[in-house]
């Protein structure tokens, strides 16, 4: 009998009345079904899982690799607007983010995380998508500030995208205008918790599907 490894779930968030936002996320955010792995790797994993209790090994390996991943998330410096100044303050002396292992890195090809800090405009949206595409998997995105969350104070402007999740899939939303560095650090730590649930052998942790 084949024992299937369990799919980890992220604990449900405290707010529960945003049913249609989750609806929106399910419909609009396109994530790759599985991360790209080599066929050799897949066959090794299948082999390990064919033994009874084999998933203990992969779960332990998952935990180890997730710990390594979350301790070394390199954000790409993608400052758009005012939130970029607070992001720079978070990366700098007082609210040092390098103690979490996050080295801000200019090139998207070498980074894991995109902190969208600032208003996304219609002119900038294709550039943002291009930078996100240039990041290799596994990658995460954090939406910082109310402009990136939903358009913010400029939501009714003709040139403003109503939230960066219309452009790229987002993992963590940090509210504020701008969020002070403490809030951004909270968001980054929440992201680290999400990464800890990431599954190397397959899909990302599925959000809690049926919440009754």
């Amino acid at each position: 009998m084949e024992i299937k490894a369990p799919i980890p779930v992220i604990p449900a968030p405290i707010w529960r009345d945003i049913k249609d936002l989750q609806e929106w996320e399910r419909l609009r955010q396109h994530r790759p079904v599985g991360d790209k792995h080599s066929a050799l790797f897949e066959s090794i994993t299948e082999g390990v899982h064919s033994f009874p209790g084999g998933f203990v090994v992969t779960t332990a390996a998952d935990a180890f690799f997730n710990w390594a991943r979350k301790s070394s998330v390199w954000p790409v410096t993608f400052g758009l607007a005012c939130c970029a100044i607070e992001m720079m303050a978070t990366f700098a002396s007082r609210f040092d983010v390098e103690r979490l292992g996050m080295v801000p890195w200019a090139s998207p090809r070498h980074s894991d995380l995109m902190v969208v800090s600032g208003t996304v405009t219609i002119k900038m949206a294709p550039m943002l998508e291009r930078i996100y595409d240039q990041m290799p998997d596994p990658k995460w995105a954090l939406s910082m500030g109310s402009c990136a969350n939903s358009g913010g104070p400029f939501r009714h402007g003709y040139h403003v995208v109503k939230g960066v999740d219309r452009v790229i899939p987002i993992d963590v939303y940090v509210p504020g205008c701008p969020p002070p560095p403490e809030s951004l650090l909270n968001g980054l730590l929440l992201l680290q918790d999400q990464i800890a649930h990431f599954r190397r052998t397959g899909q990302r942790a599925a959000p809690n599907a049926k919440v009754d």
Binding site: G157, H159, V160, V161, R166, V167
Partner: peptide, 17 residues
């Protein structure tokens, strides 16, 4: 031309807004 009075401030522009 947006700043003309005949242009609405929240003109939609799918898919972004």
């Amino acid at each position: 031309h947006p700043l003309l009075k005949s242009y609405a401030v929240d003109t939609p522009h799918p898919p972004y807004r």
